[in-house]
């Protein structure tokens, strides 16, 4: 049987986010992220003055773009993309030039000082390949993130994107980002 084509993505319902940062901690624990570096973050956007005040929390990580500029600029091919869309770094090939970090419109990558290589969110590919969801998705108490395969028409993520309005960040960079923020 031929393998079915896959395209992993995340849908983010940022209105559900309570800024508990459990996703940030879960990611660091799962992936042994060095102290001072993060693979995901929660952007805070404040608006207005007290008492007319609002705050918006917006989780962000690597967008696993359809046309990733980090992969394009990498001189050695260390930055690469799997057929299912996950963008990864081959640590043995990375020379640490940091061109990909400069080229990422979402500042999603960090430099691992100790190993001298660039690192980033792997969408927990080691878990995904076993059929699990990424650590940030699993741990979220308010179910902000929905992980799934866009090619699978029966998936929750497919249903959300066909019935809800959403936006992607900075589409004008041409990267084709795959983090979908529900409106």
């Amino acid at each position: 049987m031929a393998m079915k084509k896959k395209r992993y993505a995340l849908v983010i319902d940022s209105r559900k986010c309570i800024n508990c940062k459990a996703c940030v901690v879960a990611c660091k624990a799962e992936n042994n992220v060095p102290i001072g570096n993060f693979r995901n973050r929660i952007n805070e956007e404040r608006k207005g003055e007290y008492p007319k005040l609002s705050i918006n929390f917006e989780p962000e990580q690597c967008h696993h773009c359809a046309e990733p500029s980090c992969v394009r600029v990498c001189p050695t091919g260390a930055s690469w993309q799997r057929k299912d869309g996950i963008v990864l770094v081959n640590y043995d090939e990375c020379i640490g030039c940091r061109y990909c970090m400069v080229a990422c419109p979402y500042d999603a990558r960090y430099f691992n000082e100790e190993q001298g290589v660039v690192d980033k969110c792997t969408l927990c590919s080691h878990r995904v390949d076993k059929g699990d969801t990424p650590a940030c998705v699993e741990t979220c108490p308010s179910k902000v993130r929905v992980f799934g395969d866009l090619e699978d028409t029966s998936s929750r993520i497919h249903e959300l994107l066909s019935t809800r309005r959403y936006r992607v960040k900075e589409p004008q960079t041409g990267n084709g980002p795959q983090l979908y923020y529900l409106l």
């Binding site: 001189p75 090939e93 020379i95 940091r98 430099f111 001298g116």
Partner: peptide, 13 residues
């Protein structure tokens, strides 16, 4: 470079 001794990789790709 983060790993200066790997610069040769620039020339094998």
């Amino acid at each position: 470079l983060g790993n200066w001794y790997r610069f040769y990789k620039l020339f094998i790709h």
